[in-house]
Design a protein around this nucleic acid. Structure first.
Length: 272
DNA sequence: AACATTCGCAACCGCCTGGGT
DNA sequence: GACCCAGGCGGTTGCGAATGT
């Protein structure tokens, strides 16, 4: 299907809320011709908008498959956990929430989830003094770990269910299962493999030093080493962790979400 | 009822990045 | 390498609705 061609707009561009008529024009055009170059979409679709505005409207509102309505508890848990690890990487986070846009997630964070986190941190601060990472000097309340802890407190996750499942796999009780300390684990679907490529600073406990080999590693797999030296912004958020803190597991996030084991150590994961 | 404040959401702005020339 | 342009992203703003006083 061939897109119509046209020249640059000469009329003043409209701003503000989109009318149903404008939505219809944009939808019709993109469905029939695809967007191709967004800069020509408004011209060819007969809209007095700029390309960026059209793109945003399509992505955030008109695109098929968008989920409308309130966020489910599971979605909120996912956002909180991913935000704890990735920071304000809304587009990355949205990749793990089908049908949700980065803008929607960002809005929900600023209007609701951020407050939930700070509330739980206040409660935490009253219960115990802050933990300071000896390697980074960062306090726990400013790290992703605190977010993960807050998630655990705020959900209905049943620790005994998890440890029972663990036991069924291992034929032995989960280690230190009755305490409530989170291990620091990267789940397979939290960070894309691409984000690790080229970061040879990541090494495995069993000596596999090439990140690209991580899929072949045992579950105990990857222990981060010198994470703070990684150049990618996407892993900067990990710099709060020391070498001994961070583990990678190819398990899927929702398989053991909120997994909580006291006195966690790497061997504990070997048989999961 | 009137006004003020807060909330939720859509949209805009400015910056960054990557591709093309 | 420098420049331009489009796309993508995160931060911020604006505004109507909801809620509080």
């Amino acid at each position: 299907m061939k897109c119509k061609q046209s020249e640059k707009p000469k009329t003043k561009q409209k701003r503000g809320l989109w009318s149903p008529d404008e939505d219809q024009k944009l939808r019709d055009y993109v469905v029939n011709y695809g967007h191709g170059s967004w800069s020509v979409v408004p011209i060819n679709a007969g809209l007095q908008r700029n390309g960026k505005s059209c793109r945003l409207r399509w992505i955030n509102y008109l695109r098929p498959g968008l989920k409308k309505g309130a966020f489910s508890m599971q979605e909120e848990e996912t956002i909180l956990a991913l935000h704890g690890l990735l920071g304000n990487k809304w587009s990355l986070i949205s990749q793990h929430l089908p049908g949700r846009t980065d803008n929607e997630i960002k809005n929900h964070w600023h209007s609701y989830l951020k407050k939930q986190v700070s509330k739980s941190e206040n409660v935490e601060a009253k219960i115990k003094p802050e933990y300071t990472n000896s390697n980074t000097g960062c306090t726990e309340s400013s790290s992703s770990l605190s977010y993960m802890n807050s998630i655990t407190r705020n959900t209905s996750f049943d620790l005994s269910d998890f440890t029972n499942n663990l036991s069924s796999v291992t034929n032995q009780p989960g280690p230190h299962a009755q305490t409530n300390k989170l291990p620091k684990i990267l789940f397979a679907d939290w960070l894309s493999l691409e984000e690790f490529h080229g970061h040879e600073s990541f090494v495995c406990k069993d000596g596999i030093s090439n990140v690209s080999n991580y899929q072949d590693a045992p579950v105990s797999g990857m222990i981060s080493n010198e994470v703070s030296t990684a150049s990618s912004e996407n892993v900067d958020c990990l710099s709060n962790y020391s070498n001994e803190d961070l583990f990678y597991t190819p398990m899927k996030f929702d398989q053991i979400f909120n997994f909580s084991v006291g006195d966690f150590n790497i061997e504990d994961l070997l048989y999961i």
